[in-house]
Every structure is written in C-alpha cells, then in structure tokens.
Amino acid sequence: MQLWALIVDGFRQAVDSKIFWVLACGTVVIMLALLSIGFEEGKAVFLFGAFETESGGYNPMFELGRSRLVGVIIYYVMSLFLGWIGVVLMIIATADLIPGMLQSGSVEVLAAKPISRWRLFLYRYLSGLVFVFLQAALFIGLTVLVMGFRWGVWRPGLLASIPLLVLMFSYLYCVSAAVAVKTRSALACVLITIGAWVVFAMVSQAPMLMEAFRMEKSSRLYRVVYAVSWVPPKTGDLPILAARFAHAGTSSDVLPESVLQSGGPQQREDFELAREIEERQLKQPPVYSIGSSLLFEAVVLGFAMLSFARTDF
C-alpha cells in the first residue's frame, strides 16, 4: 500500500513537470519519422514516399539489411536519442522527486508516518525508476512495433533495451538520490549527476582508449586504469548489451561497406582495431558489466539511505 502510494505520487509529480511533455512530444516525433520511412522493391522511401533512394545494404529483404537496420536503430535512435537526450531529460524530470520530499514542511509529515526511513527513501527512488520504465517501454515498444509492421523487421530482442535503459538510468539516479539527501536541491542533483555520468563514461572507456593508442597491456599504468575502470557503473555498455540481445549492433552493422573500405591502410587498420575491441565487448558476459555497476549503485544507495535515516528534520 505504501509502495504503491509513493510510486503513484512520484509518477504524478514527474508528469506535472514540463519535461514529461517534452519527452512525450519527442517520442511522437521520432515515431512519425520512423513511420515515414519505408522499403519497397529494393528502394528506401522517405516522408511517406516523397523521396526515394536505393536501399543499398539496408534492404530488409535480406538478413544483412535487417541486421543493419537494427544496428541503426540501436545506435542512432535508442543510444543517441533515448540513451543520451532521453536520459538527460529523465534526469531532469526525476531530479525533484527526492529533494521535493525532503523540503522543510513536507518531510516532517512523511517522516511521522509508520514507514521506516530507509523504506521511504527506497520507495521514492523506485518511483523514479518506474517513471523511466514507463517512458522507455512506450518509446521502445512503439519502435519495435513500427519496425515490425512498417519494415517487416521483427526483433523482439530489442525489448530487452527497456530494462537495460532503466538499469543504466538507475546507475545515474542513485547519484542523484545521494546528492538530494545531502543538498535537497534539484539543480544540484541534475548538475552533479550529469557530471558524474561524464566521469563514469571517461573512466570506463579509459582502458579501451589506451588500447586504441596501442599502450602495452602489461604496463603498470594500463593495469591501474583497467582496475579503476571497474569501479564506476558502466553506463556506456547499454548499446553493447542491447546489441547482444538484438543480435546486431557493431559498427560493421551500422556503417555501409563503402565507408568501411574507404581510407588508407592505416585508417583501415585503426578501424579493424576498433571493431576488434567492439567484438570483444560484445563477447563479455553482461554479468561483469551489470554486476560491478550494481555494486556501485548499492554502495551509493546505502550511503544515501544511512544519511537519510540519521538526519533530523
């Protein structure tokens, strides 16, 4: 009863913000854009037939074409729009859930109810995740349906992106929640969470960057950086994990052959190295990425809950 009340309240609060409607409008625009694209007899048509061009390697009649279309959706629609712009908007939309609860005059009423502090905090945190889940489910569900009905490409594995996106958001939202307990400021939550996201991405990607620069894996610096890279949550792994479930998603699935083959020998060698790293990431068991990230999240949440439970309001 208490969990449901807090989740419904959190949803009401999030829906009350303008950001919710920005996200909703963004979803409608992207879906219309996807709907406007079609494939007919080896040709790709845009804006419901206003323009057309050769479908090239993206013809959904063939497995390679289908795989590339899924790759494009994962990289450009889910990863770029939902994974970046969408997540930033959702960070903003949910930023005030916990600070709002902690405002003077508001927290006293809640803290005087027969619910433990840690539960109150955790339920409120979950209400933010439920909000994101519903947004993601709407967006990704519609994308899967558009791809299936309009293009004939059925990849239900893409639906795994819904919990994956919520998971990735939870890595960031735990930071927002901890900042909320300490500052009670929604603005601080947004700024620090986005800052933390950048740091997480940089630290997680650091070993691969060093590999790209051909640093020796046996060097002390590489080993230290590699060890540190396991500490923060792996927010950048979303498209990789989504690709695993959809059986597509490496750069070779996204980029046309002409791009892969262009450039000099050095560029081709660099591309091959990058693809090798991608392939290796795809082969990594998700349990490493998710497990280490969840451990980080649990530590941050534990700290936030302890702090909340010990605060006098």
Binding site: D9, R12, Q13, V15, G100, Q103, S104, G105, S106, A112
Partner: peptide, 13 residues
C-alpha cells in the same frame, strides 16, 4: 495524527 508547523503538501495533488 500529526500536523507540523508550516507544513507543505505537493502542489500537483
């Protein structure tokens, strides 16, 4: 039952 001083309820409700 408890009514705190200068209480605040969520404005969206």
């Amino acid at each position: 039952g408890y009514l705190p001083e200068s209480h605040r309820f969520p404005g969206y409700l």
